[in-house]
Design a protein around this nucleic acid. Sequence first.
DNA 1: TTCCGACAGTGGGGTCGCAAT
DNA 2: ATTGCGACCCCACTATCGGAA
Length: 507
Amino acid sequence: MLLIDVVRVSEAVARTSSRLGKIGHLAELLGRVGPDEAEIAISYLSGELPQRQVGVGWRTLEDLPQPKLAATATLTAVDALLSRIKAVSGQGSQAARRTLVAELFAGLTSQEQQFMRRLLHGELRQGALDGVMIEAVAKASGAPASDVRRALTLRGSLPAVGAAALAGGVTALHAFRLEVGRAVSPMLAGSAPNVAAALEKAGTPAALEWKLDGVRVQAHRAGSEVKVFTRTLDDITPQVPELVEAVLEMPADDLVLDGEVIALRPDGRPHAFQVTASRVSSKTDVARLRERTPLSVFFFDALRADGADLLDQPYAQRQEALARLVPPDLLTPRLVTGEVAQAEQFFTDVVKAGHEGLVVKSLASPYAAGRRGAGWIKVKPRHTLDLVVLAAEWGHGRRQGKLSNLHLGARDPEGGFVMLGKTFKGMTDELLAWQTERFLELAEGPTDGWTVQVRPEVVVEIAFDGVQRSPRYPGGMALRFARVLRYRPDKRVEDADTVETVRALML
DNA sequence: TTCCGACAGTGGGGTCGCAAT
DNA sequence: ATTGCGACCCCACTATCGGAA
């Protein structure tokens, strides 16, 4: 199959707003792709590369060779070239990589170049990724979507699952099983504004677990071999020896556990997230790093234990298995209750202990891997500040032509403003239209064609999760997860919060 | 007919490893 | 030694479609 066939379908999908229409276009192509090219086609049309990453980003794609006029590139040829690019990126010069990237793009028409560039950026923007492709695979193979989804959960790769479904239908899908040593898509949580709302969603009584601000880990043990994966299924085993040792001490040699790894201070309070993230991502000198910044692990779920898969068991039963295997000090603190007052007290306690909040879990829910919002709901406290808009950046995609990303500043009592970060979150279309007009009126000073500097006259109420140390911003601090709540036309700039107020929140 | 769950899109700050400067 | 890029850790929120109620 030619790349242009895939590109044309992608464009048709992008033009269709109906999901069923998108699924129809995708399924039609899956019906005519050969078995040796199915994985590549599924991969591209769900916005991924079979190679995952090939070490090519926006900078490498800045200047590309002249496009060809005739579309002759085959899927397999393009795929082979991408594999070579990945191999060179793994060990070799950027010059060699650029040569191969140029070779790839020189063989493509301008239409194909556009597609490949977006694919490499991870910004397909056709309105269809995994969720829609699952339905398309189901339609093309005649298998139920739930079977496709379940196989994906267990296998972690939609191209592999899709190709199997196209070749062998439902039977092939049922052959996918949880395999110790291969990561399962982790179950994700939805969110609620407060504990009462979360309890309502989960149903009572519910389990409330501490939400620790660390890195999600999935630990597998087969005999004396342990592997640890992140949320995106990356293997981080060498970086977390503490966790490996803890799992090896457990009285079972066939298990899969879900938990969170976090760096704690000697007094038991958590380090800033940056400290945990740094430890977990450091690959060199791990032995020395662990002495200075040891990692702790807290497990909250068991996906396999005692030779049995537990994914379909209700939460309460998985907890029993977990408690049998994991020593009490490695269990995530939890409380089962249906009383709102008791739950709110637990929330107050966890925040006072310096942690992020709670995850509220339905006692009946199975481990619905890879989906958000099923039976788990997170609750975190929310801070707010009144800040001043210092600049705005033009948006991309559906926000093209709209000023989107805001530069936020706190008032400096000595005069001027100190930038604390940016946000593009929380804006409705109506708000985007309004702020575009307003900030163009207030535009002032130099522009790089991308960022519009504005007179600091507009006060905006910002919600955020916390203040973190920043090596980037002048005040040495930045807001974490900032989002717009509303504009405050009733407030003057002199009423905005000061740098001192923000600094006090960092301590 | 209305409601709501799931999805895609739009980007945020911080850190590491690696190659180029 | 420093800088820039790519990848990946954490992530919130809105718009939209289409099945559920």
